[in-house]
Design a protein around this nucleic acid. Structure first.
Length: 574
RNA sequence: GCCGGAGUAGCUCAGUGGCAGAGCACUUCAAUGGUAAUGAAGAGGUCGUGAGUUCAAUUCUCACCUCCGGCUCCA
């Protein structure tokens, strides 16, 4: 019996238990999911996580009763009768041709299965109800919110314990927790939700990452540009953001009303695109100028719904490693191949080799001709295939202005976050009437590719912290070396060593404070400092340092030798 | 925004309708240390904010703010 089937059956037992404990409960749906299952209920009373043990106990009772899962094929009419007091099931029934039901004890369920034959096949100690959450019926915000109960389930109690332990460990890698422990950033209630304040070490990390990617972009034919944080509201009307994106924008600044001299309202930018278009349009472009690639670390502000904010991974002020590529139709495929190639290479610089790629295609509401959509989508597919990327197609999930490729990275507990996005923009060249002159002297419309490879620095750093569990490789560590003096008579020497390292461009701090060596080592370990150098009488005599890395004592070496070693590691981005 | 939960010292968390608590961190003193916590003393609080109930509210009630887990949305 496979685990998915068992999890699905656990979901049914959950429904059974809830119906017995809360008569009058209406059932939604209850599938198996990764690591477990859930079930959606319309309950006659409020419940919270405190009620879960009671429900769990009921479930165990039911499982121990050796209930049989009996499948029956029935006609729609029969099903309607059986499910007459289950409005959500009746709604589901409308869309079905073949109807199967499952009877488990007193519970009648509309379900296509499969299930275990009997609860005897379920281990009553191999599941646990984990959380209560709200979920919209059929995933639609307009519908009623049902109560969803989540559970995890495995083949055995032992595997359940392993999983729960893994989750507990993963929590320690949470970037919000590490961000505080490593003194990288915070969010201040008075500054505002979703607005990040980077501390010295966090700001340095952000700069190291920024510098690295900008350098790589420049080497790949990108030109760096820089644009303002606000623009006249009219710009956003022209671009279409005022119509299509208004819910996500901070409200406009009512200059007109406040100051009779000022003729225009202003708007904090949610995107960088229109600015880059403006730079493009400053002179007449020839086909010889294309492809043209403008990149900018652009800080944008988006009014995300309050409930969606999450540490660094979902914020209201974010810096995108943004770029817009303008090219001819003929150049599109090649540009996309180059882009995907660069993406793979850059993600690899940060140790990411696994990510999930999606291709989102033409949605219901869109602008542009079907032909250009088709061509753009084919170009994206071509590029993915060319580089042998596996991807999942998401029909109708594209932006209104074009299809896109997204790459999702996982956080410590397996939640996926969209980072890289590569979008073909069919809207802005039209709206801004962008042109270039082709070989024959005719005006043509360029294709515009909107792309952010890290996505936003905030989200990327959030994922990166969890990826390395705060243990950054030397080239990214805000503090690379601590020089720890043993006794007070070694302090001058420790300072000398630290200064020497600093002059070589190494981020070294001297720890001459009045603490024991053990204490300072411990602090260095807790702060994930890559190299701890202990210097006492022996080292001073030898003009050397005792090196500790990854909790291992590598022994005494000449200071010059250590400098050579660490510089090599930094250069190789180890 | 919606559903559920939470907010006590810088951090992790106890606790109570009647003087506000611990550990770590911090400051001072002593110890001059050899690879994951030296010892002692001290300081530190509008108990998220505002209103209400009460002789008395950090504790009970309501509203708001923020955070946490989901849903929807998204870089």
């Amino acid at each position: 019996m496979d685990l998915e089937t068992k999890r699905h059956s656990f979901a049914h037992i959950l429904a059974h238990a809830v119906q017995e404990l809360y008569p009058g409960t209406k059932l939604g749906i209850g599938p198996d999911v990764e690591n477990g299952f859930y079930y959606d209920f319309d309950l006659p009373e409020k419940i919270s996580e405190d009620d879960l043990p009671k429900i769990e106990k009921k479930m165990k009772d039911l499982i121990n009763q050796d209930l049989k899962f009996k499948r029956e094929e029935v006609s729609k009419e029969e099903a309607k009768k059986l499910l007459e007091d289950q409005p959500y099931k009746l709604e589901l029934l409308e869309d079905l041709d073949e109807v199967s039901i499952y009877k488990t004890g007193d519970l009648v369920e509309l379900c296509k299965g499969p299930h275990v034959d009997s609860t005897k096949q379920l281990d009553p100690d191999a599941f646990k109800l984990t959380k209560v959450a709200g979920a919209y019926w059929k995933g639609d915000e307009e519908n009623k919110m049902l109560t969803r109960i989540y559970g995890v389930a495995f083949d055995s109690e032992e595997k359940l314990e392993d999983y729960l332990e893994f989750k507990e460990e993963a929590k320690k890698r949470d970037h919000r927790r590490l961000g505080e422990k490593l003194d990288l950033f915070h969010v201040d209630e008075d500054v505002g939700p979703g607005l990040i304040l980077w501390h010295p070490k966090g700001a340095l990390l952000k700069k190291l990452i920024s510098d690295h990617v900008v350098e790589r972009y420049r080497k790949n034919g990108y030109d760096l540009v820089s644009t303002p944080h606000i623009a006249k509201f009219g710009l956003w009307e022209k671009s279409g953001h005022a119509d299509f994106y208004e819910d996500n924008m901070f409200p406009k600044m009512h200059m007109k009303e406040l100051d009779k001299e000022e003729k225009d309202d202003y708007q904090l930018k949610p995107m960088n695109c229109p600015f880059h278009v403006s730079i493009y349009q400053q002179d007449i472009k020839s086909y010889r100028d294309l492809p043209l690639r403008y990149t900018e670390l652009g800080t944008v502000y988006r009014y995300e719904k309050s409930g969606t904010l999450h540490g660094l991974t979902r914020v209201r002020g974010l810096t995108q490693d943004d770029a817009h590529v303008f090219c001819t139709k003929q150049q599109l495929s090649e540009e996309l191949v180059k882009l995907l190639d660069l993406t793979e290479s850059i993600l690899k610089d940060f140790g990411f080799e696994n990510y999930n790629i999606t291709l989102a295609t033409q949605p219901e509401k869109y602008i542009g001709s079907d032909e250009i959509w088709e061509k753009s989508q084919n170009a994206l597919k071509y590029a993915l295939d060319e580089l042998n990327f596996e991807y999942e197609e998401e029909p109708e999930e594209g932006a209104f202005y074009g299809p896109k490729i997204d790459m999702n990275l996982e956080d410590a507990i397996g939640r996926e976050w969209q980072c890289t996005t590569i979008q073909v923009d069919l809207n802005l060249p039209e709206r801004f009437d962008m042109t270039y002159v082709d070989e024959d002297g005719n005006e043509q419309k360029p294709i515009m590719i909107h792309r952010a490879l890290l996505g936003s620095l905030e989200r990327f750093i959030g994922i990166l912290i969890e990826h390395y569990a705060g243990n950054f490789p030397v080239w990214l560590a805000p503090e690379q070396v601590w020089v720890i003096s043993v006794g007070s008579r070694n302090r001058d020497y420790a300072s000398e060593v630290a200064e020497k390292l600093q002059q070589e461009g190494i981020r070294a701090e001297v720890r001459n404070d009045n603490k024991t060596v053990s204490k300072k080592i411990r602090q260095g370990e807790v702060q994930n400092i890559p190299y701890l150098l202990v210097v006492g009488d022996d080292e001073q005599e030898e003009d050397g340092v005792s090196v500790r890395k990854e909790s291992e004592d590598l022994g005494l070496m000449k200071t010059e030798e250590f400098i050579k070693k660490i510089k090599e590691e930094i250069k190789n981005k180890e």
